[in-house]
Design a protein around this nucleic acid. Structure first.
Length: 202
DNA sequence: ACGAAGATTGGCT
DNA sequence: GCCAATCTTCGTC
């Protein structure tokens, strides 16, 4: 099997909803101080840039924080939520088109011992990497990686030839965005069906 | 300069 | 199920 690091081209699509589904079954890999950890993406949410009330970049709002979302697709947008959780997003689309995909859960694959240590856990359990704050902690992702190229040496995404079809994917509304009014119930949350590593559907 | 709220999580009732 | 933790961000004063 060939492992292909996704090239920057992959992230240029204008259709963030489709790309959000396409990232399911891909692998996030991090490497820090020689420690390598990886997991398969099993749950994502699409944030459709300027037109999406749930997006930080709604109405093309440019601030110091959201500037990363306006970069050309293929970089990481990592921000601190509730003062303690580092949330990992994949910036997509061309420059100045602030689309992003929030990764919400992964299946741990490589470096599980390191992940357990980072999380202060003894036993392998879905809690290890279910939820955006949890998976970031397990993979050692912090806001220090904000703006990093996803083709860098410390964080990237790989295609490992996992083939998925529409029937493998479950669709539901996004969570934690009650403020988003008419965009609150859009079915832009995607997960692998029958996968124990995701959180429960809304 | 101030303060409210947040794309969440885990512990306790 | 409820609620505190914890701190950056951003709108408002």
């Amino acid at each position: 099997m060939r492992y292909l690091k996704l090239p920057r081209d992959y992230y240029q699509s204008l259709d963030v909803v489709k790309l959000s589904q396409g990232l399911l079954g891909k692998f996030i890999v991090t490497e820090q101080n020689g420690l390598r950890t990886a997991g398969m993406i099993v749950e994502t949410e699409a944030y459709r840039g300027a037109e999406d009330r749930a997006s930080h970049a709604y109405n093309n709002r440019r601030t110091q924080r959201t500037e990363t979302m306006f970069a050309q697709g293929g970089v990481a947008y990592v921000y601190l939520c509730y003062g303690m959780h580092h949330l990992f997003n994949v910036v997509t689309g061309p420059k100045d088109c602030p689309h992003a995909v929030l990764v919400r859960a992964i299946e741990p694959i490589e470096g599980i011992a390191f992940m357990l240590e980072r999380r202060g856990m003894q036993q392998l359990h879905p809690r290890l990497t279910a939820g955006p704050g949890s998976l970031s902690k397990a993979l050692g992702i912090t806001t220090a990686l904000n703006g990093s190229l996803l083709t860098s040496k410390s964080v990237w995404i790989e295609d490992r030839d996992i083939q998925l079809s529409k029937k493998d994917i479950l669709t539901s509304p996004r969570v934690g965005i009650d403020y988003a009014k008419e965009h609150r119930d859009l079915p832009w949350r995607f997960r692998l069906k029958n996968c124990v590593w995701t959180s429960k559907a809304k």
